[in-house]
């Protein structure tokens, strides 16, 4: 699929032309429908190229997953591999998630209490 970057740039240029330069008219509606079909086609092509669910040749099954599955019990002492990943291997990432929660609740309280 060497043409896909060109197709993407073409879609973006068409979107920019339609939404910034074209006045509200019949041709604009037709072009919007064409753009939606092009975006939908790109999404369908992307999904069709994804690996089959559960197949062993998925790019995600590389040495990282193998290392986690083989070394979790010896390295972290937890037998739940997912907990070991999110709270030991990627604990800093989970701190970021906790920060997201904190910012969300702080923003909600600040907005609601102001009224």
């Amino acid at each position: 699929m060497e043409a896909s970057p060109l197709v993407g740039v073409g879609i973006l240029l068409l979107i920019a032309y339609v939404f910034f330069y074209l006045p509200r008219s019949q041709i604009r509606h037709i072009l919007v429908i064409v753009i939606l079909f092009m975006i939908g086609y790109a999404l369908v092509v992307t999904v069709a190229e994804m690996p089959v669910f559960g197949s062993a040749n998925t790019p995600a099954y590389n040495y990282v997953a193998k290392r986690y599955l083989e070394g979790t019990v010896a390295e972290t002492g937890a037998i739940n591999v997912i907990s070991a990943i999110i709270l030991d291997y990627r604990a800093f990432d989970t701190l970021g998630e906790a920060t997201v929660l904190f910012v969300a609740i702080a923003a909600a309280i600040a907005n609601l209490k102001a009224h």
Partner: peptide, 18 residues
């Protein structure tokens, strides 16, 4: 020991905080 309640080092305490 893996499989006991108090195992896994800090995972237990981090899970409590979360």
């Amino acid at each position: 020991t893996p499989g006991q309640l108090f195992s896994g080092g800090i995972i237990f305490f981090l899970s409590l905080g979360i």
